[in-house]
C-alpha cells in the first residue's frame, strides 16, 4: 500500500512536468494543427538558461548553504521564461509562419529541423557533457505517514498547479483567451471576424514556451543533471500526454501528463523497468487505435 502511494506520488511529480510541456503542444496543435517538434527542446533551453543564470547568481551572491533561496529562484525562473518566450516567438515568426499555407508536412519537417538545431546547437554551444543544475532551494525530506516526500516534489506540484490555473484563467477569463479559442475553433472565420490571428498565434507560442521554461526549471530542480538532448524524451512523452488527453484540449493535457507520469513511475518500480521508455509509445499506439480522439477530445471525420 505504502509502495503504491509512493509510486503514485513520484508519478504525479513527474507527470506535472510532462503536463506543463504538454500544454504547449496542445495549444499549438489546437490552433495551427502543427506538431511543434521543437517544443521539447524549448524545455531543454529553459533548463540551460536556468543553469547559466542560476550559476551566475550563485557565483556572485552569498548563498546560504549552497542554495539560492526563494527570491532568486523565482528570478531565475522568470529569466528562463522570458528567454524561452522570446525563442518561441521568433521560432514561429521565422520558421513556421512562412510555411503556414504550405502542405503540413513542410512545417512538420521544419519543426524537426528546429528541434535538431536546438539539440545540436545546444551540444555545440553548451557542450555535449551533462551539467549540474545549481541548487535553487535547499532540499529536505518530509516524512509523511511512512512516505518519503521531498520538498522539491511539493514545489513542483504547487508551481505547476499555479501556472495551470493561470493558463486556465487566460484561456477562459480574458479577451485574448476568447480570441484564442475562436482561432482554434475555426481559423478562417476567426480572421474574418477581425481577430488578429497572427498576434494570437504569436502569443500562443510565447505562452507555451514560457510553460516549457517553467517545466525546464522544475526539472532541473528535481533531477539536477541536464544535457542538450534531455528535451527529446520528455518532449515526446508530453506530446503523447497531449494526444492521450485529446489534442487541443487543455485540461486533457494535464490529465494525460499525470497519467503518463504515474504509469511510468509504476513501471519503473516493477521488474519491467527496462521498458519504461517504451510504455508511453505503447500507450500512444493503443490510444490512437481505440480512441483516436483521446480521452476528452472530439474526433472529426473528414468532409467529402
Amino acid at each position: 500500500m505504502q509502495e503504491i502511494l509512493q509510486n503514485l506520488l513520484n508519478g504525479i511529480a513527474v507527470g506535472a512536468i510532462y503536463a506543463l510541456i504538454a500544454l504547449g503542444y496542445t495549444m499549438v496543435y489546437g490552433i495551427l494543427k502543427l506538431i511543434n517538434f521543437a517544443h521539447g527542446d524549448v524545455f531543454m533551453l529553459g533548463s540551460f538558461v536556468g543553469f547559466y543564470v542560476g550559476g551566475y547568481a550563485a557565483r556572485h551572491l552569498h548563498t546560504t548553504g549552497g542554495a539560492l533561496g526563494w527570491g532568486y529562484a523565482g528570478l531565475v525562473m522568470l529569466v528562463a521564461m522570458v528567454v524561452c518566450g522570446l525563442f518561441g516567438f521568433l521560432n514561429e515568426r521565422i520558421a513556421y509562419r512562412p510555411l503556414r499555407n504550405s502542405p503540413r508536412i513542410a512545417s512538420l519537417i521544419t519543426a524537426i529541423g528546429v528541434s535538431f538545431l536546438l539539440e545540436y546547437g545546444g551540444q555545440f554551444v553548451f557542450g555535449a557533457d551533462p551539467k549540474r543544475f545549481p541548487t535553487l532551494v535547499a532540499p529536505h525530506y518530509i516524512a509523511f505517514g511512512g512516505l518519503s516526500v521531498t520538498n522539491y516534489q511539493i514545489i513542483v506540484l504547487v508551481v505547476a498547479v499555479i501556472f495551470m490555473g493561470l493558463l486556465q484563467y487566460i484561456i477562459y477569463g480574458t479577451k485574448f483567451g476568447r480570441a484564442m479559442r475562436a482561432v482554434s475553433f475555426n481559423f478562417e472565420t476567426a480572421s474574418l471576424m477581425g481577430i488578429p490571428t497572427d498576434r494570437v498565434i504569436s502569443m500562443t507560442f510565447i505562452i507555451g514556451s514560457m510553460l516549457a521554461a517553467v517545466a525546464g526549471i522544475l526539472f532541473g530542480l528535481s533531477y539536477p543533471t541536464i544535457n542538450p538532448l534531455m528535451g527529446i524524451m520528455p518532449g515526446l512523452k508530453a506530446f503523447i500526454a497531449a494526444v492521450l488527453g485529446g489534442i487541443g484540449n487543455v485540461p486533457g493535457a494535464v490529465v494525460g501528463g499525470l497519467i503518463i507520469g504515474i504509469i511510468e513511475s509504476f513501471i519503473g518500480g516493477s521488474p519491467l523497468s527496462g521498458y519504461k521508455d517504451a510504455i508511453a509509445f505503447i500507450i500512444l499506439i493503443a490510444i490512437l487505435l481505440f480512441r483516436p480522439s483521446g480521452l476528452f477530445g472530439k474526433y472529426q471525420a473528414e468532409k467529402v
Binding site: K33, L34, I35, R104, I105, L108, L236, F239, I240, V243, A280, F281, L284, I285, L288, P292
Partner: peptide, 11 residues
C-alpha cells in the same frame, strides 16, 4: 499524416 509520424517514431 502527423499522427502517423509520431506513431512510427514511437514504434
Amino acid at each position: 499524416g502527423d499522427y502517423l509520424a509520431i506513431v512510427t517514431l514511437g514504434f
